[in-house]
Write a protein that binds this DNA or RNA. Structure first.
Length: 510
RNA sequence: GGCCGGAUACCCAAGCGGUCCAAGGGGACGGAUUGCAAAUUCGUUAUUCGCGGGUUCGAAUCCCGCUCCGGCCUCCA
């Protein structure tokens, strides 16, 4: 068996075949850095991470690039032609307010008037969160920063692409001075999203600013460069000082970092389902307009959106949870990661706190299994059947639930685990990526992220004292008092556990 | 209106025509263990897969219709 993966381009599950195995080139549309990323963002990035890890498990060598969008695009991005306040301007206002309210994380000296500093601030926050959740590319980029590029570093390449598109008659300068891509010059526009130019034309009625439409050859024509000397971020160009269109950056970076030389096609491209149209559709048109290749990406991977407690989450509704929120409430990185990857990537996952508790239990059991195995004196070889079952499930369009079922069944049935069993579990975990993460976010991590625990800081010495009191009461068989102390601790959010090596305690998530 | 998904027990969820009186996790319930808990462990928890037809020797799995839910169609991962 080998991996079969749904390809948005063909709307079917098909064998994943890179151009030059065992190498795989993989471009992932990453976050925008105008704000903290929410768990919905992370669900999509982690789905890409899971895919990437499974490819590596299967023997591929993956080069994954993930961008961090830091060019300030418009909030009210009518036809992607610019309108409404700049997103970076919005972020700047928000940061200024935080600064005034003294809410900026300690140790951060940030000039909110510097748009690059704003982007850097949120980019660093994203990288920190991503590493907490085991996003591999976020760790790799410490060695090779080009793996997580930012479009403000790629403006010359974007200008070069625009020039070539104009030269090749795929783009034109309209009467308003804006450079547009001419969708009618690219007959396959719409293939990825299942649109046709006619549908797009009729669908455009009433939704698009008339004045703006008037200058374009087709309503679906999208902006490549907008001259605007008042924009917060702007660069000189042959079409005047201004800024690039928001689809262009991914074409520029993917082609430059993954398809340089003779190679004009990348193997894999991922992004949230909302990116299918227009973003990826436009990327394909631009990129193939430049390269002339049959494909921009051979395989398109689009995880679906995450719901929270049954409700759609979105930035505009403000119903989003961040990784920091969950850590502050006492949930551990391992459980958060598993909760976000445990549902098939093409289903709308529903994030719930109940689910987070489920996954917390599951990771604890896996961890205990590995710890017992590694401490075991048994040389009994591992039963490789679970690895086959695991791989069979994952080969089937990343059937993560089936793969987890195989792991759980194995762990449930296995006798005392041997060292080989523990090693096998660790091997499977190179895909799942949860055992390598801490079970609990410790104080040092919380401080590094600049967040305070919502539970307040627990006075560890006080807790230890109460536990000592309780154990003294137990020793004198005063169980009434012992239970009273335990209730007191519980009221503080502390759970205790009497083990063979004494009493341990943990702070319960809130 | 166009395009694309989905409906499996209390919750999450696998299942891709027979080996399904349907995996796995959580929860609940009962037993062992424990001073009591927690953890662990054993057992129980869907003769049934949204509804109605059909194809087939055989359907949760294929086809048709219906109902409901969701996504995208230029803010969004």
């Amino acid at each position: 068996m080998s991996l079969r993966l749904y390809n948005t381009l063909s709307r079917s599950v098909e064998p994943f075949v890179p151009a030059h195995p065992p190498r795989v080139t993989f471009y992932s549309c990453g976050p925008t850095v105008y704000d903290f990323a929410h768990i919905g963002n992370f669900r999509s990035f982690l789905a890409a991470d899971l895919l990437r890890r499974y490819l590596e498990f299967s023997g591929y060598q993956v080069r994954q690039v993930m961008n961090m969008t830091d060019v300030g695009h418009m909030v009210d991005d009518e036809a992607a032609d610019g309108g409404g306040p700049d997103k970076l301007e919005v972020a700047r206002q928000r940061l200024l307010e935080s600064k005034k309210a003294g809410k900026l994380p300690p140790g951060v000296s940030l000039d909110p008037d510097d748009p690059y500093a704003i982007g850097s601030f949120y980019a660093e926050a994203f990288l920190a969160d991503a590493r907490v959740l085991g996003l591999k590319v976020a760790s790799e980029m410490l060695e090779d920063p080009s793996l997580m590029p930012r479009p403000t570093q790629y403006v010359p390449q974007m200008i070069a692409l625009t020039k070539k598109l104009i030269d090749d008659r795929h783009a034109y300068v309209a009467s308003d001075g804006v450079v547009y891509f001419d969708v009618q010059s690219f007959p396959e526009y719409g293939q990825l999203s299942g649109n046709t130019l006619d549908q797009l034309r009729s669908g455009a009625g009433g939704r698009i600013d008339e004045a703006n439409q008037a200058v374009k050859k087709h309503p679906a024509d999208f902006m490549l460069w907008k001259p605007d000397p008042t924009h917060l971020m702007r660069w000189p160009s042959p079409w005047g000082e201004g800024y690039p269109g928001w689809h262009l950056e991914c074409s520029a970076m993917a082609l430059d970092l993954l398809a340089s030389g003779d190679e004009r096609t990348i193997d894999l491209h991922s992004g949230g389902e909302d990116n299918i149209f227009p973003h990826h559709e436009c990327e394909i048109a631009q990129s193939r307009g430049v390269t002339g290749a049959k494909h921009f990406a051979r395989h398109w991977f689009h995880p679906r959106h995450l719901f929270v407690e049954g409700e759609k989450m979105s930035k505009s509704k403000g119903t989003f949870l961040t990784v920091r929120d969950l850590l502050a409430r006492g949930y551990g990185p391992a459980a958060i990661r598993l909760e976000l990857i445990k549902t098939h990537y093409r289903s709308n996952a529903n994030f719930t706190f109940q689910g987070l508790k489920d996954t917390d239990r599951m990771t604890a059991r896996w961890r205990a299994f590995v710890e017992r195995g590694e401490a075991s004196g048994s040389d009994r070889p591992a039963d490789e059947a679970v690895a086959r079952e695991f791989a069979d499930a994952m080969d089937n369009d990343l059937n993560i639930a089936g793969a987890m079922g195989a792991v759980n069944k194995w762990i449930g049935q296995a006798a005392e685990p041997s060292r080989a069993d523990a090693a096998l579990m660790r091997r499977l975990d190179t895909v799942l990526g949860v055992l390598e993460l801490p079970e609990q976010a410790d104080a040092a991590l919380l401080e590094r992220l600049g967040i305070a625990s919502a539970g307040g800081s627990v006075d560890a010495a006080h807790v230890e004292q109460l536990i000592a009191d309780r154990n003294a009461a137990r020793a004198s068989r005063d169980f009434k008092k012992a239970d009273a102390v335990r209730d007191e601790l519980a009221a503080m959010g502390i759970e205790i556990k009497d083990g063979p090596d004494g009493t341990t305690w943990t702070q319960r998530p809130r």
